[in-house]
Amino acid sequence: MTAPEILGTLESALYAPDLDAAEAFFAGTLGMRVIARQPGRHVFFAAGDSVLLVFDPDATAAGSPAGARLPVPGHGARGPGHYCFRVAAGALDAWRRHLEAHDIAIEADFTWPNGARSIYVRDPAGNSVEFAPSVLWFRPLSDGGREP
C-alpha cells in the first residue's frame, strides 16, 4: 500500500525554558510575527507558510491535563535542537549583516558541495538556527517545479 502524499511541513518545534528571550530573538531580532502565546507554556511564530512553535519543555512534557479541551500528548526535548529558515540565496549577505548588527554571533557561514550557502547562529536557548535557500535540498526545474 502506498502512503498518501505529504504536502510539506506545517509546523516544527524548538524548546526553550526562557520564552521571553525566545520571543525577543525570533520576533524582535528576526522580525517574525507572533501568532499565539501562552505565558509559561509557548510562543508561536509565522514562518512563511509554516509555523515555528517554541515551547517551554517543562510545561509540555506531561501533555494536556486530564479533561483538557485539546488533549495534546506530552512532548519535549532537552539540549539544542535545529531549525532552518528558507531564505532567498541573494538575501544571505543581508541576513549576515542584520544578525551581526544585533550582536548575534555567526557560528558558521559556508557553501555546501552543491553550491548552496548556509549561515548558522544560536538562539538564546542554544538551538542551532540556520538560514539557507531552497537549493540546499531542491534544485529548480525548467517547468517551474523542483526536484530533490
Rank of each mutant, 00 (worst) to 15 (best):
R86Y: 15
Y83G: 00
G63F: 02
V72K: 02
D93N: 13
P65L: 06
D93P: 14
S134C: 02
G31I: 10
D143H: 02
R97K: 15
H102R: 14
V121L: 08
R97N: 13
D123T: 13
P133F: 07
D123P: 12
S134F: 10
D123W: 05
Y83N: 12
R86P: 00
L19D: 06
E147F: 02
A66C: 01
L136D: 11
W137G: 08
D109C: 14
A66Y: 03
H98F: 00
A27M: 01
V129S: 09
S50F: 07
G40W: 07
G90D: 15
A94S: 15
T9W: 10
H82F: 13
Y83M: 14
V54A: 01
R69V: 09
D109V: 14
V87S: 13
A68P: 08
M32Y: 05
G8L: 05
I35N: 02
I35T: 10
P4Q: 09
L10H: 11
A46I: 04
E130H: 03
N127A: 07
A66E: 14
S134I: 10
P140V: 11
V135H: 05
W112C: 12
E11Q: 14
L92D: 12
R97S: 15
Q38W: 06
E5S: 01
L141G: 09
G79E: 06
S12V: 07
V51T: 09
Y83K: 01
P65C: 01
E23L: 00
P71K: 08
L136C: 01
F26N: 03
P17Y: 04
R96M: 09
R78S: 10
M32G: 05
P65F: 01
F138L: 04
F110S: 15
D103W: 13
D103L: 14
A3Y: 12
T2L: 05
A61S: 04
P57D: 04
D56Q: 05
S118Q: 15
T60C: 08
M1E: 12
D20R: 15
G115Y: 05
W95E: 10
L52F: 06
A21Y: 02
F45C: 06
I119W: 05
R33I: 03
E11K: 08
F45T: 04
L52P: 03
P17E: 11
M1C: 06
E107L: 11
G40I: 08
A22T: 10
E11F: 14
A24D: 13
G76V: 13
L14M: 04
G8E: 09
D49T: 12
L52I: 03
L92E: 12
A88C: 07
A125R: 11
E11L: 02
A21V: 00
S134H: 13
V135N: 14
A62V: 01
P4L: 05
N114S: 13
G81A: 10
L70M: 07
T2K: 09
T2M: 00
E107A: 14
L136I: 00
G28D: 01
P140E: 12
E5T: 13
G115L: 11
F55A: 05
V87L: 08
S64M: 01
F45I: 04
F55H: 06
R33N: 02
A94W: 10
P73F: 00
F138W: 15
W137L: 08
